[in-house]
Design a binder for these strands. Sequence first.
DNA 1: TGATCGGAGATCATTATAGTCTCCGATCTT
DNA 2: AAGATCGGAGACTATAATGATCTCCGATCA
Lengths: 157, 157
Amino acid sequence: MLKISKKADYALMALQHIAVVQFGDVTPGRVVNTKEIAEEYNIPLELLAKVLQTLAKHALIESHNGPKGGYLLARRTHQITIAQILESIEGPLGITDCSHEKDGELCMQRENCHIRTPLLKVQDSIAQLLNNMTLQDMMGGTPLITIQSPAAQGVER
Amino acid sequence: MLKISKKADYALMALQHIAVVQFGDVTPGRVVNTKEIAEEYNIPLELLAKVLQTLAKHALIESHNGPKGGYLLARRTHQITIAQILESIEGPLGITDCSHEKDGELCMQRENCHIRTPLLKVQDSIAQLLNNMTLQDMMGGTPLITIQSPAAQGVER
DNA sequence: TGATCGGAGATCATTATAGTCTCCGATCTT
DNA sequence: AAGATCGGAGACTATAATGATCTCCGATCA
């Protein structure tokens, strides 16, 4: 349950790889192309291409065409959150169908639903979790952040 | 992203309802049948029946056959966690495919995968969140719990 | 100019999900 | 004992999401 998609998985691997290449000691600033990542991690080339295109569209990476082309991080590693990465691929975080309900489009249960509020609190906690973790943290950094569980905030019925 | 299924949604609604009826002031101890819940929340009767059967199989509720039959909570509300409910319906919590990988069945990426460890930390945090929240919390209770984000625990590369 | 790169679109197979239908056995009421 | 009311269990269907593939295009650099 609560599984992230393969695409999101690939996105995380790819960004971590780009980050290490770009900010590592061996070849700092080097551009990384799709093929390199696909081969390194056994990811289907064309699927990974889609993923990277999506990430570029969301301005997490910059694309460079032509030979010697490829991708570079658009920001520094601590400015790219796990939440941003996952949401770029899978859309906005939403524990329930009604998480992003516009006014007027109520779900069939809404009239009597007593679980929406507490679930939104859970969602907020997960959002905090993912927003406070960055690419930097996937490379060995250890910043200090504390979040609270929804239960600790008091949940109205 | 990270959406829970309709079935899990229904399970939460149903358990919350049973809890309120069973431990409320109006009709304490009353047995609740499937039809009552389905009508109250506009849930397809037969689908809800499946959900409740599953919950019974996981010993979260007790079933009683025959006329005047229905379901009762098998434990007190603070002893039923949101994690238990969701896992009964959707299976074990697993952010990634490799979360519950047995020895020997490595995923195609595992050889070079650098994101597994940090993702498992994220998963642990979510698990804490869901394990520390109970049916009680969905009824107005406000216990105090604090958890830490993975970033705060230090994530190896 | 042509090989190498990303961009974009359609397409397909597989799986998960949501929902339905049917039959069965248990139990309570009369 | 009979019939209505309950849950138990299985097969079954439709739809959507996912994972993956294929094709063609434009940009760029040697």
